[in-house]
């Protein structure tokens, strides 16, 4: 049961963590994140970095789609813009790592604003189609602007260097990628405690009354696009340093759908949602791979026979969540919390 949570100040009442249980969990999470690289093997560390990159991008998409209500299928293309920006800056100008990552976000944000311009006039499915069109145009640019993007063969990226240390292994990169993602998630959580975050939600829920309240729609929709693509650009920049090669096929259109699915499975319009969703979408296929391996001794040809089944199971899991928990994984967490808040009085 949750007791002793009375607040004496408004600051305490509007804090991000309002109970001691939440604070304890957050400390445990921080410890796990710090200790994980010393425990996990290279393969799981690689997956951990990938999850962190995907969380950053999904959090960005959630600001745009979950909170502002503008459906976008261009997140992968914005990530690609960030990745190419890093590749270009690192290869041609040799600017430092953190600056490149930040610049990747800014370049992607600028492209995002351009793509977002139609959003004042078109909404819903029509806007989704407009962002698809934009991502195909960007794909065309990536394959044809050979002097910058290297065309179909792409560009290589040198290992990142920070304070003279070469960040080549997932172990080293983990200590950069995870903090950057954590800061970005914290930024998003802060945003929705202020007037700007509230304005985004107002536009999602009822744009006409938002305008009457003095919220300029175009300015805020473009701001949401810029912020969302900034997150994608930074994620793409980290991706470029992680995989060290960027080609037009690095960010296929299916990746945009992957992120939209991650946000929906995790829970639209929640901070926790994209974190859980991105982890789910990244890790479940890998876990299913293990399941198939364990079945190997039982079914001699398991590898060949079951790998298509793996994809089907993954798809079925997503459908299962959409049908039985349309509010996403975040809602399951909220329900568990509510159970413990009220226990033992009401279950």
């Amino acid at each position: 049961m949750r007791i002793a949570t009375a607040k004496e100040t408004y600051v305490a009442d509007e804090g991000l963590l309002t109970t001691n249980t939440q604070r304890a969990w957050m400390i445990i999470l921080a410890l796990v994140l710090v200790l994980a690289p010393f425990v996990l093997n290279a393969y799981w560390l690689y997956l951990a970095c990938l999850v962190a990159i995907n969380v950053a991008s999904a959090t960005g998409l959630n600001i745009l789609t979950g909170y502002t209500g503008l459906v976008s299928l261009g997140q992968a293309a914005f990530m690609a813009v960030g990745a190419y920006a890093v590749a270009f800056l690192d290869g041609h100008l040799g600017t430092p790592f953190l600056l490149n990552i930040f610049a990747a976000g800014l370049v992607a944000a600028a492209v995002g604003v351009l793509v977002g311009v139609p959003s004042l006039r078109v909404k819903g499915l029509y806007l989704a189609i407009a962002t698809i069109a934009a991502s195909f145009i960007l794909h065309f640019v990536f394959t044809h602007w050979v002097s910058v993007t290297g065309g179909m063969s792409g560009v290589n990226v040198a290992p990142a260097r920070l304070f003279g240390i070469e960040l080549a292994s997932p172990f080293a990169l983990y200590f950069v990628i995870v903090p950057i993602t954590a800061v970005m998630v914290l930024g998003a959580a802060n945003l929705f405690r202020t007037r700007i975050g509230r304005a985004f939600i107002a536009i999602r829920d009822r744009d006409i009354s938002a305008e009457v309240l003095g919220i300029p729609l175009l300015q805020y929709k473009l701001m949401s696009f810029a912020l969302s693509s900034f997150y994608a650009g930074v994620a793409g920049g980290m991706w470029a340093y992680f995989f060290r090669v960027v080609t037009p096929e690095s960010f296929p259109f299916a990746t945009s759908i992957f992120f939209l699915a991650a946000v929906i499975v995790g829970g639209l319009g929640t901070i926790l949602g994209p974190i859980l969703g991105a982890a789910f979408m990244t890790l479940v296929p890998e876990l299913l791979k293990y399941v198939v391996e364990w079945l190997g001794p039982v079914f001699p040809n398991a590898g060949a026979a079951l790998s298509p089944v793996r994809t089907i199971v993954f798809g079925a899991l997503i459908v299962f969540f959409l049908v039985f928990e349309p509010q996403g994984l975040a809602e399951i967490v909220r329900r568990i919390r509510r159970f413990f808040h009220l226990w033992p009085f009401k279950t």
Binding site: N190, L191, T194, A202
Partner: peptide
């Protein structure tokens, strides 16, 4: 909303 001043950077931080 219209009477407040917080900008995007301040909001994120």
């Amino acid at each position: 909303h219209a009477h407040m001043r917080t900008n995007l950077l301040q909001a994120l931080a």
